[in-house]
Design a binder for these strands. Structure first.
Length: 468
RNA sequence: GUGGAUGUAGCUCAGCUGGUAGAGCGCCGCGUUGUGGUCGCGGAUGUCGCGGGUUCGAGUCCCGUCAUUCACCCCA
């Protein structure tokens, strides 16, 4: 059989073992944090009917279609759903899940979900066709009190701050009501077009956006100028409201948005520290999605080019069965976008490529039962242990451990002597009892290692970050 | 999906106007016959991303393709 040359697949990243160890630890930290806040774990199927995926306003998404190899032409277009597609986010499947299980769920319903999603877009650094998202959402029946907007922001910030290896982050918050009210008060003929233009401020210089506002959103110079002045407002406290009011426009929606935005910023103020900033940033618009109030984006210091790693917002009408509507608010974290670039650039790594904390050396094949017993005793106490594969010279066995980052090598007692355990980083070797010996707590699990590329310096941080 | 740049050893990269493929690091072995890392000596790195074309001859020039990356689109 001719072997086809194997090549990577564009946009479908795969991790090395040490990187996967870091990712798995991150997922563990996120899940624990979400559950600390009472969010229930949830998983939905990978596929949805295409008509669900392509509901209003979502037709531009690049959806991967699922098809049976044996399906005939007639089968494809036959059923009413129009076939199946892989989900491109976790919010749309969740909305469907809520409708489907509304009778069995308690509202407001809080859930988190960490799953792969697929988008047929052109890959770039931090943009993939298959990637992992971590979502939290709160959904109510008919109504959802505003304080949940503050809650989801607090939960996600709490989760992010526990990932101590991350560069400092900046959560940017805005409010759709605020900007829509402002644009309406201004007399903008097409509020969506204004948002779309303003949303480009990240990449396009202000005077170009001004031109867009005039050409495509139908504003005059003075209106466009006011839009830019609004978008330029960015404060880390409630003072943005004064700056907005100083622009002299009034509208009920604008007022409502100002109050909500202030509530989010002030509600999160207690979480702010050196590694987490929260700003009211009035240029955040979030495209044309289903958002109706609060909107979030999140950026990493020094990695602004990556775009937002974590965003979301309030949607008043995401799910509805005609009689009942289910308003929600949520945020989703792009786990792959966050981690893969840090791996690629060598910023993040694991200090081990295996979970093992101990390698039990094997003097000879006859001693394997003895070695297995030692390993068993250690594992019984939660210490990840492996026994050497072959009775090579001890130097080789030590090197085996070193290559994998296993910190301890155990030398079993032979001929009546003591067992000994060696820390191969320090070279320190001590007699030890397999029934009671434990490594230092910090060596029990692999650690995430952060290296600052510019200086080349290396610092270690425990993965299970405690709130400080 | 559209357009541009890039692709040489496991990694970082040399390789001139076409003429038999290189370095450092890493890896393997020995010195060191059950205790690695330092040092010394020795060794192997490879369908030059892949396929086709031009040519006596292609890593080098041309076309296609795949991958990476940048911009657009969109967004985690």
């Amino acid at each position: 059989m001719a072997s086809r040359r194997i090549t990577p697949l564009s946009g479908f990243p795969e991790l090395l073992p040490g990187q996967r160890i870091v990712e798995a630890q991150v997922v563990r930290t996120l899940s624990e944090t979400f559950e600390l806040h009472g969010f229930a774990p949830l998983e939905t199927r990978a596929v949805e009917p295409l008509d669900q995926l392509l509901r209003k306003g979502e037709t531009s998404k690049e959806v991967y279609v699922l098809r049976r190899l044996q399906a005939s032409e007639e089968d494809d277009g036959g059923d009413s759903s129009g076939g199946l597609g892989l989900h491109f986010d976790l919010t749309v499947p969740f909305a469907r899940y809520v409708l489907e299980n509304a009778g069995k769920l308690e509202f407001p319903f809080r859930r988190y979900q960490v799953q792969k999603v697929w988008r047929g877009e052109r890959p770039q650094e931090g943009r993939f066709r298959e990637f992992t998202q971590a979502d939290i959402d709160v959904v109510g029946r008919d109504v959802l009190p505003f304080h949940h907007d503050v809650e989801v922001a607090r939960v996600m910030v709490d989760a992010l701050r526990r990932l101590e290896f991350l560069p400092p982050i900046r959560l940017q918050v805005n409010n759709r009501k605020l900007i829509q009210g402002f644009y309406s008060a201004l007399g903008a003929p097409d509020v969506d077009a204004v948002m779309r233009a303003v949303d480009k401020l990240d990449k396009v210089p202000p005077d170009a956006v001004q031109q867009l506002l005039v050409d495509e959103a139908g504003l005059d110079e003075k209106q466009a100028d006011l839009c830019l002045r609004l978008a330029a407002i960015s404060t880390d406290d409630g003072s943005f409201a004064d700056e907005v009011r100083a622009l002299g426009l009034e509208h009920p929606l604008l007022e409502e948005g100002l109050e909500e935005l202030a509530a989010v910023v002030e509600g999160c103020a207690s979480l702010v520290d050196q590694r987490v900033r929260i700003v009211a940033d009035l240029k955040i618009a979030r495209g044309l999605d289903y958002y109706t109030g609060t909107v979030f984006e999140t950026r990493l210091d020094g990695f602004e080019w990556l775009g937002s790693i974590c965003s979301g917002g309030r949607y008043d009408a995401l799910a509805s069965d005609g009689k009942t509507s289910y308003p929600g608010v949520g945020i989703s974290l792009g786990l792959s976008r966050l981690l893969v670039p840090l791996f690629q650039r060598g910023v993040l790594a694991s200090d081990r490529s295996v979970p093992s904390a101990v390698l039990v050396a094997l003097p000879d094949e006859e001693s394997r039962p003895t070695c297995d017993r030692v390993a068993h005793q250690l594992r019984e106490r939660g210490i990840a242990t492996e026994v050497a594969a072959a009775p090579q010279k001890y130097g080789k066995q030590i090197r085996y451990a070193e290559r994998r980052g296993i910190p301890f090598v155990w030398f079993p007692a032979t001929g009546g002597g003591d067992h000994e355990v060696k820390d191969i980083r320090s070279g320190d070797q001590q007699p030890a009892d397999p029934a009671s010996w434990s490594p230092p707590a910090g060596d029990l699990r692999p650690r995430t290692v952060v290296s600052t590329v510019s200086t080349g310096s290396t610092t270690e941080s425990p993965d299970e970050g405690a709130p400080s």
